[in-house]
Design a protein around this nucleic acid. Sequence first.
DNA 1: CAATGCCTATCTTCCGATAGGTAGGTTAGA
DNA 2: TCTAACCTACCTATCGGAAGATAGGCATTG
Lengths: 181, 181
Amino acid sequence: MVYSTVEKIIEVAELQARAGGYNALSFRVIAKQVGIKSASIHYHFATKADLGVAIAHRYTARFEQQLAKLAENSTQPSDRLEGYIALFVQALTVDKKMCLCGILAAESDLLPEALQRAVQVFFEVNVAWLHGALFAGQPQAKAQAFFVLASLEGALLMSKVMQTDAPLEQVCKLLRQDCWQ
Amino acid sequence: MVYSTVEKIIEVAELQARAGGYNALSFRVIAKQVGIKSASIHYHFATKADLGVAIAHRYTARFEQQLAKLAENSTQPSDRLEGYIALFVQALTVDKKMCLCGILAAESDLLPEALQRAVQVFFEVNVAWLHGALFAGQPQAKAQAFFVLASLEGALLMSKVMQTDAPLEQVCKLLRQDCWQ
DNA sequence: CAATGCCTATCTTCCGATAGGTAGGTTAGA
DNA sequence: TCTAACCTACCTATCGGAAGATAGGCATTG
């Protein structure tokens, strides 16, 4: 697979942001890892905010694709929940990184406005999917959608800092129990 | 003057960190708000990491005090849960800021080691309290402790970035329903 | 007299951003 | 088909500013 320079920049930047947030993004560090000079990044992304937005957009788009595939491949709500959970477990156990939009949401107060909006979209997309594909028709569908997403983001946070998979594992266990009796 | 310089530094720094995380802390900005020079902060806190640890320690200590008072003033688990929930609701509606340790946990990968440990302690304290004061004796006490804390941290995150109290409110509503039948 | 708590001045390092240059490829007109 | 114009994707060099940190000085206080 051949990656373009732009794709490489976004890929490297995403991993960096998922480790330390927006302020941890450094043009020089990204450039070094990609194999170009920091000034060249400005050719593809005029400002740091533009780069941030691009990362968030790609991250959300990739998530949306996986959600669509999930709804396509399984009709049972319990299977869909399992697939949804797997997205967060993968972030922790495979990428060993936070959810990009989770970490950006935490520091959203000080983000450029365009990036703030891009992060918002991620959460709206997720809530909408949970609402429509997982809790459709249920009386408290919206609340349950918030609940699942919030508990997974929070559990990811806790597992990262506590350096053990236990929080996310336990939260997943209860999600499986409580949502579908 | 009621507050010492050290207390003022920590107070200002906490608010700053709760808005944008560790990297958003700036000695110069803190100094300006406190009314001293940035070099003077180094007299009280040798390094930025030391200041970060001090913030986290005070934040955790204050939380512990509130938890102790909570356990003292109410014996009913449902009342204790209500009081616990209130701590997070207050962060959102009164302070209009993230939980300090929530935002630091998100970027824990790149934090100084001492600060990382200080943030860990916050979560351990919370889990221990939930486990002992709220779910004592229940078969899945540990899992439920993780679950409550994770969902509240995540909901806070979501409410911040979505700029609406709805996520936290809805999560609280379900917590009240699901935890005590 | 010495410790405390601040100050000024300055250091190095890193940051995002800009200006201007260049090699190589594509396009368009005579 | 030759060539002038242009575009793409980088480069070097440099800017102003902000970052944390340090050295040394100067009052106030006990």
